[in-house]
């Protein structure tokens, strides 16, 4: 198991699509190793763009340093050794079993330090599925699995490569509460092995409950960042999401966001400008 204490440092990152720059000169606090970093924000805030840029799937400039190396400068195969990205969904109509799909993600390209030949690959793939408690569907065809099961298999495909940086795009979007909790528990376990785990989440309560570090994006810039208490505030919610909301602690000590109403357009900006961290009640 690779253990690293290297944080992911993003500086002056610009990324986007041929005719549309989504992120411009973005510099963020380091994403710490051993921690879960959640990217949150409204639709079109730049979360997925940032994720794709970190995964090397769209063109980006600036620097994304992991240890002494800039992952933007790495070749595809070298980056795949350090970083694994899990997209939101597996494609439909694929005639592969869960086990084969996990094997393929290891066999697709060599991973430094991992033996990927012979029966060891099968054992390793099965262990990855077992780790997510889905060893019983190893021989099932992907087509026959529920959305939630497919998402878990997809996570197993990322986990098997034991990357230093794990990028997860909404890994819980198709999961029920029980599986959400299971998956986030596993994500926490993976982070504690020394990985940098970056996860896109839409559910702020889930982010507040599980993330150690939260980056709130709005229009390609960081509207707030830091631990959940610092990042999730009524002022931020008004400014970024345009809603009036309470942020309270549950009896278990977790932050909880309760939206009360949608603010008229532009109102949130004034609230945030007056006092970004203040309660708006």
């Amino acid at each position: 198991m690779t253990v690293t204490s290297e944080a992911l440092r993003i500086e002056r990152l610009s990324a986007g699509y041929p005719r549309r720059r989504v992120i411009e000169q973005l510099t963020l606090d380091p994403f710490p190793a051993n921690r879960i970093t959640a990217l949150v924000g409204p639709n079109a805030a730049g979360k997925s763009t940032l994720m794709l840029a970190l995964a090397g799937l769209i063109r980006a400039t600036g620097s994304v340093r992991l240890g002494g190396r800039d992952i933007l400068d790495m070749a595809v195969a070298e980056r795949a050794n350090a970083v694994t990205f899990m997209p939101q969904a597996l494609p439909q109509g694929v005639a592969l079993s869960a086990l084969e799909s996990v094997m393929a993600s290891l066999k697709a390209s060599p991973v430094a330090g991992l033996e990927a030949r012979g029966p060891r690959v099968r054992e390793r793939a099965f262990a990855a599925l077992e780790r997510l408690s889905i060893g019983d569907i190893a021989m099932e065809q992907l087509n026959r699995l529920s959305g939630g099961q497919r998402q878990l298999v997809s996570l197993a495909q990322a986990v098997i490569r034991e990357p230093r940086v794990l990028l997860l795009d909404e890994p819980t979007s198709a999961l029920d509460l029980r599986h959400q909790t299971q998956v986030m528990g596993l994500v926490r376990e993976l982070a504690s092995e020394g990985k940098v785990v970056v996860i896109v989440l839409h559910d702020l309560n889930l982010a507040a409950r599980w993330a150690d570090h939260i980056v709130v994006l709005r229009d390609g810039t960081a509207a707030a960042q830091g631990d959940p208490e610092r990042a999730i505030t009524p002022g931020m919610l008004a400014y970024v999401y345009g809603v009036e909301a309470r942020v309270e602690r549950s009896s278990l000590g977790h932050l909880q966001v309760s939206v009360e109403r949608v603010l008229p357009q532009g109102a949130g900006v004034h609230v945030a400008a007056a006092s970004p961290d203040a309660s708006i009640h």
């Binding site: 694994t84 592969l96 393929a104 697709a108 390209s109």
Partner: peptide, 17 residues
Amino acid sequence: QLTALRLGQDRARSLGI
């Protein structure tokens, strides 16, 4: 690599293909 490509283009690229 072709088998892994069946898992989606973005995933395949992320896997180093």
